[in-house]
Computed example of a mutant assay.
Amino acid sequence: MTNTLLLDVDGTLVDTNYHHAVAWLRAFRSVGLTVPAWRVHRAIGMGGDRLVEAVAGEHAEAEHGDAVRKAWEQEFDGLLPEIRPLEGAHRLVTTAATEHGFSVVLASSGKREHIEHYLDLLDVRDVIAGFTTSEDAEDSKPAPDILQVALSTVDADRAVVIGDSVWDCDAARRIGLPVVGLLTGGFSEAELREHGASSVYVELDNLRADLVDLPFAAV
Rank of each mutant, 00 (worst) to 15 (best):
D8C: 01
E63Q: 11
E87I: 10
E58A: 15
T153N: 05
V202F: 01
F187L: 05
G110N: 07
F187I: 08
E203H: 15
L183W: 10
A21Y: 01
A67E: 15
R69I: 06
M1R: 07
V52D: 00
H117A: 10
E53G: 12
E116I: 12
V104H: 00
D77T: 15
I146M: 13
L33D: 04
A67S: 07
A60N: 04
G181Q: 08
S152H: 04
V160D: 02
A37F: 14
D139A: 14
A190W: 15
G186Y: 06
S134H: 12
E189T: 11
A60C: 07
S199L: 08
D126S: 02
A89E: 08
F131L: 10
T4K: 01
Q74L: 14
V9H: 03
V55R: 02
T153K: 14
N206M: 02
G185A: 11
V200T: 14
M46N: 09
A37T: 00
N3Y: 13
P85Q: 02
G176C: 08
G32P: 03
T184G: 14
S199V: 14
L207A: 11
G181C: 12
V31T: 06
I162P: 03
F131V: 05
E53D: 10
V14A: 07
H19M: 04
F102L: 02
D168K: 07
G47V: 06
G88E: 11
T12R: 07
A129D: 00
I162Q: 08
V179L: 11
T34S: 11
W24L: 11
G47R: 12
L13N: 04
V180G: 03
Q74H: 15
L122P: 03
P144F: 06
S103N: 15
